[in-house]
Design a protein around this nucleic acid. Structure first.
Lengths: 128, 128
DNA sequence: TCCCAAGCTTACTTTTTTGTAAGTACTTCC
DNA sequence: GGAAGTACTTACAAAAAAGTAAGCTTGGGA
């Protein structure tokens, strides 16, 4: 329960460690969403692109590369034309995807709280 | 369990919605770490800065502003000199901080998996 | 008077991320 | 031959994020 109890390489609060590196691969604009999209089932590149709103082909390809390198997803290419590639979560990837979906659900369920908090903050700032 | 079952504003997979906005405030380089740092107890600015390795004063101040605006943290300023300011998680903030610490712990505990996956990926790429 | 403390802010620079658009490969079909 | 399909890649540009360093505030103490 306390990240600082982990060895140096595993402590996300320390900048120069592998855990921080991996954290930054998933806890960013696209990483978590791509992982989350794959939780339901294996998907093709275009299917991921369509599910993750706003992601460009460039960012999707880049994100998939990074996630594959970390061992979070597995890429299967079929020898057919047109090209057919499938992406699947690995065990590690599934564990992280579950956590991200839980995070998305929590944020999504409480979105009104955020909206009203922002309004309160903005109006208080305006009057100061 | 399925984010697409949420109303539009609450579905993180849709780009133009409040949930995505809030997600991007926490699931980024510094947001989750700052939230996670505050889970143990209320902290002053300098204490957060010291716990979150690698964060600059500029990025810490900026991140705290964003998190406060979203209603995830509360700032208490004391009328003393030198200035004394404390930051605390709100209820929402705590719910998110718990999820981030869980994520950090998972990543930290399995850091060897990532390291070896990366080696495998890199050596396979070199031989291709 | 000067220095110190903590919590920022500000101006400018650098780095990173993201966007845009075109291109590639290769088979199949018209 | 051209068009279509899919999964990227590439080159360049723009935007965003982050870094760096100096500065400000104000009371208290030497």
């Amino acid at each position: 329960m306390d990240p600082s109890a982990l060895p140096t390489a595993g402590n996300c609060f320390i900048a120069a460690c592998k855990a921080r590196e991996v954290l930054n691969h998933v806890s960013n604009r696209w990483g978590g969403l791509v992982l989350g999209a794959l939780l339901e089932r294996n998907l093709r590149y275009s299917e991921i692109r369509d599910r993750v709103g706003g992601i460009s082909e460039k960012m999707l390809a880049q994100t998939l590369d990074v996630l594959e390198r970390d061992g979070l997803i597995a890429r299967t290419s079929y020898p057919v034309v047109p090209p057919r590639v499938e992406y699947a979560l690995t065990e590690s990837g599934r564990a992280l995807a579950e956590r991200f979906i839980d995070l998305f659900m929590w944020i999504g369920t409480n979105v009104e709280t955020f909206a009203s908090a922002q309004q309160r903050y903005d109006s208080q700032r305006d009057s100061a």
